[in-house]
Amino acid sequence: MSGISTGRASADVSLQSALLLYGAKDEETVFATAHPIALVKGRPTIGAGRPLQRDALISALTKLAEHAAPKAEFLPPTVLGISPSAVTWWCPPGMRRVFFKCQTLGERSAIVPHPGLVFQAANAGFRVFAVAGNDRPAADTKLYEPPYFNTWDNGGICIGTARVPKRVDVASIPRWEAGFFESAFTHPNAGGKRVAYKDGEYAFWRDMLDGKFGDSFPLECLVPMKFAVQALVNGRVGGVA
C-alpha cells in the first residue's frame, strides 16, 4: 500500500485503522468502534471492530487535531493569507535575474525589473500574479496577468524542471520563489494575453533582456484581470491548468 503525503509531517503515512460512528439520527452519534486495516489480495480491508471507549476516542481525536491543525508560526509582513491548503504572499517589485532558454530568444540571462508579484503555493498547484505599485497589497488590490513565459490562465505556473518544495507553509516561501526565478523560461503557454506590448511577448522580453526599461518595470504593459487579492486568498480564482 503506497504512503500518503500529508504535506506537513516529516514522513509519509499509510492507512492503519478505521473508526465507525453509529447513531439513531444523521447528526447524533452515540457509539463508536475501532477497526484494524488488513491487506486482502492487495486491497485494504476493514477488520472486525471493538467498542471504542470515551477516553480512547478523545485521545485519538486529540492526536489527529495536533497533526491536522496548522502549526503556529511567525508571519512576515509579505504573507497575505494562509489556509490548511495554501499560502499566499507578496514579493515586492525589484531587480531580479531571469533565465531564458527558447528558440526565439536563445539562451540568455539578465537582471531585469519586475513588478510587485503575488504568489500562491497550494496543494492544487503554484500560481503567480502581478500587482501595480510598490505597497503591500490590500484585499481590494487588483491582480494582473503575470507577464512571464511558462504561465497559464488564472496565474498557473508550468513547473517543468523547476525545483520547488513539497511543503506548503510559510517557512518554504523562499524556496518556492527560488523555484520560479531560477528556472528557465522556455515559451509562452496557450491561453490569454500575458503582456500588452507592441509585437508581442517575444519583443517585450527581448527588450527587457536588452535593458530597455532600466530599473523600472513598465506597468503600462500589465494586462488587468477581473480578480482582486481577496478573491485569490479566499479561493475564488479559477483552478490551475
Rank of each mutant, 00 (worst) to 15 (best):
G200I: 00
S85H: 08
A11N: 11
C158T: 08
V240A: 04
Q53L: 11
S183I: 00
G160W: 07
T78R: 13
G133V: 10
D199M: 01
V168H: 11
G235I: 04
A48N: 12
E182D: 13
K41M: 10
R167N: 05
Q120I: 05
E28P: 00
R163A: 06
P76E: 09
F204H: 08
W205V: 07
L64G: 02
F74Q: 14
Q230W: 02
V112R: 14
A48I: 13
L143C: 01
G94I: 08
G81L: 02
W89F: 06
T78D: 15
S10E: 14
T141W: 02
A241K: 14
S17W: 10
R96S: 15
I173T: 15
M95K: 14
E27S: 12
A48H: 11
A86F: 04
N154T: 09
F100L: 04
T151I: 12
V13Q: 09
K101D: 14
G235T: 01
E177V: 11
K212F: 11
G47W: 13
H67E: 10
P146T: 05
P147Q: 02
E145F: 08
R236N: 10
S2F: 14
A231F: 00
P44S: 05
T62D: 10
G214A: 06
L21G: 00
F119P: 10
A60F: 08
K198W: 04
E201K: 08
D140E: 14
K166F: 07
P115C: 02
L39T: 06
L143P: 10
E201A: 13
V128H: 02
Q120R: 09
A24S: 06
L20Y: 12
M95G: 11
D210F: 12
L117W: 10
P51G: 05
A65V: 04
I82K: 07
I173G: 06
D26Y: 12
K25E: 08
Q16G: 12
G238V: 00
T186P: 04
P92L: 06
L219Y: 13
G106I: 07
Q120T: 07
R43F: 13
L21Q: 04
C91M: 13
E177W: 03
F99H: 15
T62H: 07
D199V: 00
E28W: 05
E66L: 11
N234E: 13
C91F: 12
W90F: 15
C91S: 15
L64Y: 03
L222H: 07
A124P: 00
F100I: 03
G200Y: 07
G211F: 14
T141I: 05
G179I: 00
N154H: 05
A203V: 07
A184D: 03
I82E: 09
M95W: 08
D210A: 15
C221G: 08
A178T: 03
S2D: 14
D135T: 11
S172P: 03
G116W: 05
T104C: 01
A68Q: 06
A124S: 07
G239W: 01
A190W: 07
D12K: 14
F149H: 11
L80C: 01
